[in-house]
Simulated scan of single mutants.
Amino acid sequence: MAEGFQAKADTSSAFSGLDRLTGPIATKLARSMGVASGTVYRDEAKLLAPKDDGLLASSIYLAYKDNRSNDDSVTYSITWNAKKAPHGHLQEFGHWQTHVTYKGSDGHWYTLPNVPLAQPRWVPAHPFLRPAFDMARERAQQAAIARGRERLPELLRDTYQPPDDDFV
């Protein structure tokens, strides 16, 4: 699986006051807001992905990273399925083409491993993740805030324990 592109956004001003929340409510709220924000980034990356065969765009997904998340932080990745679109990194970062390639009658590109180019050539990048983070930053932040405003009352309502009537 591709690791994708790492980006950090300073959302401290948008999320001021949320640092007073602790425990499961804070984690659930952060995850809800992370999904809302990540969905905007993912969808933007899909729009920007090269459309030659559609495989790359359809393989882009948002995933929770359990091994990178803890009680203080939740992490999501936007990346692509490398089995479905194994050359996504070549599109994102560019690459040196060292062998002859051709487009088959099925519409897929193929490399002739026994036919090197006389002179390798640089194939420029057609980035889709990096620009998605730049172009969608404000929309993603707004989506996270909107989802937080919707989700927080739900979480507080679900955890509210009425007083025990035995003491009345």
Results as ranks from 00 to 15, higher is better:
R20H: 02
L18D: 00
G54F: 04
Y61Q: 15
E44R: 12
S69L: 08
A63Q: 12
D72V: 06
L62S: 06
N70P: 12
P24Q: 10
G54D: 06
D66N: 11
T27L: 02
E44L: 06
A63W: 10
A57Y: 01
G23V: 00
K28M: 08
L62D: 05
D71C: 02
T22P: 00
M33Y: 06
A63C: 10
A45C: 10
V35F: 12
G17L: 00
M33W: 08
S37V: 05
N67F: 06
L21M: 01
S69A: 08
L56M: 06
S37M: 12
G38Y: 05
A63E: 13
T75D: 07
T75R: 13
Y76I: 10
A49C: 03
P50M: 05
L62M: 08
S58Y: 05
K65G: 13
D43C: 10
V74S: 03
A57H: 02
D52K: 09
G54K: 06
L29V: 03
D72H: 14
L18Q: 00
G54A: 06
R68V: 04
T75I: 15
M33S: 09
L21C: 00
K65S: 15
S69N: 08
Y76K: 12
A57W: 03
E44M: 07
K28A: 14
M33I: 11
L29R: 01
Y41Q: 08
S59D: 09
A49I: 06
T27W: 00
G38C: 03
Y64L: 03
L21I: 01
K51T: 14
Y76A: 12
A36E: 14
G54P: 03
Y76F: 15
S77V: 11
G34F: 03
K46R: 15
N70A: 13
K46I: 11
R68I: 07
L62H: 09
N70K: 10
Y61S: 14
D19C: 01
L47S: 07
S73F: 08
S59K: 09
I25E: 01
